[in-house]
């Protein structure tokens, strides 16, 4: 890297210089103090991201951080950086995702996630992942590594993204992942909907959770968390939201997570996230919904997304108890973790 550590230090200072004093954790809704868990956060290493995706990510950084994205990323994508963003947002706990999508969004290994979780294991958790691009030869080895990550290294779940990893949701060759996750009691988080990243699969078998139905039905002990609710990130449209809601209604092992779809970039007019949160409540699925942001993305994103989500919930008539459930209680219940006191 051409830039030196003093530059990184200066950048860290600048990125935190204008922040308010460390915020009290939790948020207030209608006068009640609520705990918050962000179950969708990405640590990473810039060098493990393909060039096209680096350019895509850099283009979303504010100027002038987009000129030095590798330095900005080294600050924001570290465990310390993510904790800083969580502090600014008042978030008690966060879940860091491992990613193995070398052709699209890159690699954040289980080992890397484990290292970042170790920065503050009281507040950070990890979801493990695995490679599927050499599945015909390496399936057993990859499943073994995944099991080790969960049983030995304390990961609490599994992260998959069919569109990023280029395997179909209905391909039964991969159902062993769900079987293993169910056996270990590790919920599976799945990216659903199209992806804004270059090189991802956009066809329905990779993006529409209706193609997951066979796996959902076949493994009732496995928790399936449908990330992004089938959102169409290309066209900023609701995509296959209705399929997600139907699956959650029909199968008790299906959960919902509305991250990223309500960001300024993906929902510029702030209309889709309120629609999604209202549809969840109207469908009686509040107790199946977990909060996540898909941060840190850029400085301030984690906080902004939390505010937008809470605003969308209150505008949709959520009670305080319903907000509490979405922001923390559903997460701790599903992942068998102690309840978080605000």
């Amino acid at each position: 890297m051409r830039h030196s550590w003093p530059v990184i230090g200066l950048l860290s200072l600048l990125m935190n210089a204008c922040s308010s004093e460390p915020a009290e954790l939790g948020i207030y809704v209608q006068g009640q103090h609520l705990a918050v868990v962000d179950m969708h956060l990405h640590p990473g290493e810039w060098s493990q991201i393909p060039p096209d995706t680096q350019a895509f990510l850099a283009s979303r950084f504010p100027f002038p951080l987009n000129l030095i994205p590798e330095i900005a990323a080294s600050v924001t994508l570290s465990g310390e950086g993510i904790l800083g963003e969580m502090d600014k947002a008042g978030i008690h706990a966060g879940v860091l995702f491992a990613v193995y999508a070398p052709q699209t969004v890159g690699i954040a290994s289980n080992e890397l996630v484990g290292e970042q979780v170790a920065v503050d294991p009281e507040r950070l958790y990890g979801l493990a992942s695995l490679r599927v691009d050499r599945w015909n030869t390496d399936a057993d080895l990859e499943l073994q590594r995944l099991e080790e990550a969960i049983t030995t290294y304390g990961m609490i779940g599994v992260k998959l993204a069919h569109a990023h990893m280029h395997f179909r949701m209905d391909d039964a060759r991969y159902f062993g992942i769900y079987e293993l996750a169910g056996r270990l009691g590790a919920p599976v988080y799945l990216h659903t909907g199209t992806s804004p990243f270059p090189g991802t699969s956009r066809e329905p078998p990779y993006t529409d959770p209706a193609y997951l139905e066979d796996a959902i039905a076949q493994y009732p002990e496995t928790v399936f968390i449908l990330g992004h609710l089938g959102y169409d990130f290309e066209n900023h449209a609701l995509g296959t939201l209705e399929h997600c809601l139907r699956l959650a209604r029909d199968y008790p092992n299906v959960y919902l997570e509305p991250s990223a779809l309500g960001s300024v970039g993906s929902d510029p007019e702030s209309v889709n996230l309120p629609k999604v949160m209202k549809a969840i409540r109207d469908a009686g699925l509040v107790d199946r919904t977990l909060y996540g942001s898909d941060g840190p993305q850029s400085p301030g994103f984690v906080n902004t997304y939390l505010q937008r989500t809470v605003t969308a919930m209150t505008a949709s008539g959520y009670t305080v108890n319903e907000v509490r459930a979405v922001l923390a209680d559903n997460f701790t219940r599903i992942f068998h973790l102690p309840a978080i006191q605000p």
């Binding site: 100027f63 002038p64 987009n66």
Partner: peptide, 13 residues
């Protein structure tokens, strides 16, 4: 107070 690249969010300098 910059405004760069059209719609890109910018930080002051």
């Amino acid at each position: 107070y910059p405004r760069t690249d059209g719609s890109t969010v910018t930080l002051p300098g």
